[in-house]
């Protein structure tokens, strides 16, 4: 079976798993990816909600901070951001919109923007977003990432409105969250994996684990032809031939399939050289 077909099946299985609450399963685990516990079918908690609760209104609860981070750390130390590429339902959504983004990327103006030197700095936004809206603003001004979360709108708010017709009406924050949601959709349609690249706070927690994960994507740089087909294929816009455990790599394996010299591989733990 082709790698991308395996990945598709994995994403479908995890999407179903993320909604097992529909069968009455409600656990005390945190999702190791981006999904909302407000979803009527959610069996687990959003890690960001737990962190926000840990810091909310000048409080600090170490258990609610460590628990989601360790959940993500456990998955991250095994596969790094592989969970973004193989399990996250929002990643799955962006896999669908990526085809449109790819067509847009071929246009000259988009290529010019893509070549801007400032682009790599945009990737730090997700770390700033994580610290600012999941830790600092909940602590000081009670404003949380959850209040404007686009995933919360997609899998929480709208399904709740559908499952309980007539029971709910939108509140004050609905308008602001809708604007963020529209921007989210524009982003993922014009930039492949735009949310994962620039804004996902869960990706920001998982990214450092790419440096020490048991599984990673490795390039044999000595045999590389520098044809750049891998970089053109990479949905995260990584300079694949020169990467070394890049924090942005979601282990989707597209570069592995594209490489004509077959020198890009999944590397697992090596006990001996």
């Amino acid at each position: 079976m082709r790698l991308q077909i395996k990945r598709l099946w994995s994403q479908i299985v995890f999407l179903i798993g993320a909604n097992l609450g529909a069968l009455g399963l409600r656990t005390g685990f945190c999702y190791p990816f981006f999904y909302c516990h407000a979803c009527p079918a959610a069996p687990a908690a959003c890690p960001l909600r737990a962190i926000e609760k840990a810091f909310y209104d000048h409080s600090f609860e170490w258990k609610l901070l460590l628990y989601p981070i360790l959940t993500l750390g456990f998955v991250g130390s095994l596969t790094g951001r592989g969970v973004c590429g193989w399990a996250c339902p929002i990643g799955f959504l962006q896999r669908g919109t990526g085809h449109v983004a790819r067509k847009i990327r071929k246009k000259k103006r988009a290529q010019k923007i893509g070549q801007l030197r400032i682009e790599p700095f945009f990737r730090y936004i997700k770390y700033i977003l994580l610290i600012a809206t999941v830790i600092i603003t909940p602590y000081y001004i009670k404003f949380m990432f959850t209040d404007i979360c686009p995933t919360g709108m997609i899998v929480g708010t709208f399904p709740l409105l559908a499952v309980y017709p007539g029971k709910f009406v939108p509140n004050d924050f609905f308008m602001y969250a809708s604007v963020v949601l529209i921007l989210f959709f524009i982003l993922i349609f014009i930039i492949e994996r735009g949310w994962c690249r620039y804004f996902c706070p869960i990706g920001a927690i998982l990214a450092p684990f790419n440096k020490v994960s048991f599984v990673n994507v490795a390039v044999n740089q000595e045999e590389c032809l520098h044809c750049n087909l891998c970089s053109m294929e990479c949905p995260m816009g990584i300079d694949v031939p020169n990467m070394n455990r890049d924090p942005e790599c979601i282990l989707c394996g597209k570069c592995i399939e594209k490489c004509p010299a077959n020198i890009i591989k999944f590397e697992r733990i090596k006990w001996k050289e």
Binding site: G21, R26, H37, A38, A45, M144, T157, L160, F168, N171
Partner: peptide, 19 residues
């Protein structure tokens, strides 16, 4: 986490009021 996050919905976080 089970009792206070998964099994509850903060309605204002879900951007909803009731009718």
């Amino acid at each position: 986490v089970q009792a206070k996050i998964v099994e509850t919905i903060c309605l204002s976080c879900a951007k909803l009021d009731t009718n």
